[in-house]
Every structure is written in structure tokens, then in C-alpha cells.
């Protein structure tokens, strides 16, 4: 039975902690603390080190999920957490002011990791009135020379999180 490590990243409030809590078979490990800045208007707590959860795929493969802090000041944790990782899920909150810029910020900052592995993008809160269309994400990513799977998800739903993980695992198997 093999084990794989996947990383979930994205802006604060995108649903990284929620996603791991939704799918983990064990009680998720969280490092949430009080928010003391502007983010407090949106959420009372924020992840400052990592989230962790685990699940077993249908074929018996064990998946360890690591969630990163979203804020850029915690980018030292991004570098620590990708060590030994096999794939990346980027969650993009479409209710934020510039979701396309958010996506590219994470694509750029995880570029070294992405070069060695696979990425799946999960769009959350796509029902927001100002949310860009999925096609805009595709063309924006293509314009930077990449082709990535993009899925619209409700991160509170276990099935949707499973969809992202299965898409990433399939991409990893396909790229072998």
C-alpha cells in the first residue's frame, strides 16, 4: 500500500481547512488562531502553520493532505510543506476582489513545486455576482503557457473535495 502527500493552498478563507475537515478520516490537525487584522471581518480564525488530514482511496492508497496558511507572510511554511509532496490543489475564492490574480500568485509562488508535479484548481463561491467565468480562468492560465484542470466545487461537500483529489491523483498517474 502506497502513501502520497498532497498539498492544498489558496488565499485565506478559500476553504482549505474546511476541505481537509470535510474529507479526513481522522480528526484533522489544525493550527487556527485568532485573526487580528482586516481578515477578522470575514473570519474569526486563521491557519498559521498547517492543517493535516488523511484518507484512503478506493485502491487502498493512503493520502496525506497538508493545508498551507493562505497569507503570503507565511510563505516559509509553503516551502516546508511542499517537501516530499506529489501534487498541489489550489483553491480560489471567487468572491474575493481579484480571483485571477490570486490564482497566478499561487501558481508563481509554487512554480518550482509545480514544475515537478501536477496541479488541480478548485474554484469556490462561483455563485458570487462578480465571480469570473470558468472560461476566463482557462484562458488566463493558457496565456501563461499552462493547461490545468479546473473544477467548480463546494468545499464543504465531501464529494466535491474527493473530486479534486481524484482529479489530481488521475493527473499524477497520467503524467507518470
Amino acid at each position: 500500500m502506497s502513501e502520497i502527500k498532497l498539498i492544498i493552498t489558496g488565499p485565506p478563507g478559500a476553504g482549505k481547512t474546511t476541505a481537509i475537515a470535510a474529507i479526513s478520516e481522522t480528526a484533522p490537525v489544525k493550527t487556527d488562531t485568532h485573526t487580528t487584522d482586516d481578515l477578522a471581518a470575514v473570519k474569526e480564525q486563521t491557519t498559521v502553520a498547517m492543517d493535516f488530514g488523511e484518507l484512503t482511496l478506493d485502491d487502498g492508497q493512503k493520502v496525506f493532505l497538508y493545508g498551507t496558511p493562505g497569507q503570503r507572510r507565511f510563505e516559509f511554511m509553503w516551502k516546508i510543506l511542499v517537501e516530499g509532496g506529489l501534487g498541489l490543489i489550489i483553491l480560489v475564492d471567487c468572491s474575493r476582489p481579484d480571483p485571477l490574480a490570486d490564482l497566478h500568485m499561487y501558481l508563481d509562488n509554487f512554480a518550482d513545486f509545480i514544475r515537478q508535479t501536477s496541479v488541480v484548481v478548485g474554484l469556490t463561491r462561483t455563485d458570487h455576482p462578480d465571480a469570473p467565468a470558468v472560461a476566463e480562468f482557462y484562458s488566463s492560465i493558457e496565456s501563461s503557457g499552462r493547461v490545468l484542470p479546473i473544477l467548480e466545487v463546494d468545499i464543504r461537500e465531501r464529494e466535491d473535495v474527493a473530486l479534486l483529489i481524484n482529479a489530481l491523483v488521475s493527473t499524477l498517474e497520467f503524467s507518470r
Binding site: T33, V48, Q71
Partner: peptide, 28 residues
Amino acid sequence: VDGHDVSKSFSRDMPAAKLSAMMSAILA
């Protein structure tokens, strides 16, 4: 606790903003 520097006194040059984020992560 969420990694912003508030007050400091350093007798050597150190990056307060970065250390603040790291301290919050390690304590959590």
C-alpha cells in the same frame, strides 16, 4: 497570534515581520 509584529527591541538587525509570522506558526 496570526503573525504581525506589534512591538520590538532588537540590538541586532533581524527581520521582525518574518520572525513574527514564524513565531505564530511555531507556537501554534
